[in-house]
Design a protein around this nucleic acid. Structure first.
Length: 234
DNA sequence: CATTCGGTACAAATTACATCA
DNA sequence: TTTGATGTAATTTGTACCGAA
């Protein structure tokens, strides 16, 4: 441990105004790391206040045998380090949330696929005898009128209606395009997003927020509600 | 009032050095 | 012993704010 008295590296005040060559100075002044005890004091104060009142800075500098400027610089560097650590923590949380959502999405996709398969099987079973079924209400295939009016005659291809009325009624479900079209995604989305308004770019992520209170734990509590998570739908 | 100027504090980026494997 | 990586004290640069002139 260094005796506190020997900390003189950057200690010659007015250093900020001295344009003299650094190298020489550093050779001369023999910079040292702060002692464990000094660091402990600085850390413990930083925990409660990340910015120092000028008066407190002077007092602390006196106590630790440092120049006020050294204390100020230490706090500056400490804030920078803290911020970068905080970014790492936040990134880890975001990544974890993303991974969780992604695997949830994947399993939902699988579930959907298996339901579709089941429905197709049932469909085949039900309509085997008469290929007459109509898809309920709006037929997907005939949805756009211009498509089939090449010759003015609505060509009734006997493409299989996906959900014959019978089956639809039987299962009590709406027709296929309601179920597996865009709306499905939207309803899923709304399930996943409790708050529909676009989450404002999380200011606590970017802005150098209240340094006085270092807790940003609540930071990501709603991050999973952000629609960005669902970008991979498209 | 509005403007300018000097001083101060800070963040961000970078440098320079001490330390360690 | 040398060397590269790493952590950190200190510097530089740019910006914002404030009070005095």
């Amino acid at each position: 441990m260094f005796s506190t008295g020997e900390y003189s590296a950057a200690a010659f005040e007015g250093m900020d105004s001295l344009p003299s060559p650094r190298k020489k100075k550093n050779q001369l002044l023999n910079r040292r790391r702060f002692s464990d005890e000094q660091i402990r004091s600085l850390e413990s104060i930083f925990e409660s206040e990340s910015r120092l009142e000028p008066r407190k800075k002077l007092q602390l500098a006196r106590e630790l045998g440092l120049q006020p400027r050294q204390v100020a610089i230490w706090f500056q560097n400490k804030r920078a380090r803290w911020k970068s650590k905080q970014l790492e923590r936040e990134f880890a949380i975001l990544r974890a949330n993303y991974n969780a959502l992604y695997s949830q999405f994947e399993s939902l996709k699988k579930e959907k696929q298996s339901l579709v398969t089941q429905i197709e099987k049932l469909n085949q079973l039900v309509e085997k005898p008469q290929g007459e079924g109509q898809s309920c209400g709006h037929d997907l295939a005939t949805n756009s009128t211009d498509r089939e009016s090449d010759n003015g005659v609505p060509k009734h291809e006997d493409s299989q209606p996906v959900f014959p009325d019978k089956l639809t009624r039987l299962m009590g479900i709406p027709c296929e395009d309601d179920y597996f079209g865009l709306e499905e995604e939207q309803s899923l989305l709304s399930m996943a997003e409790p708050d529909p308004e676009p989450a404002p770019a999380d200011s606590s992520l970017t802005s150098p927020e209240p340094w006085g209170s270092l807790e940003t734990d609540d930071l990501l509590k709603q991050s999973s509600g952000s629609s960005q998570w669902w970008d991979f739908w498209s």
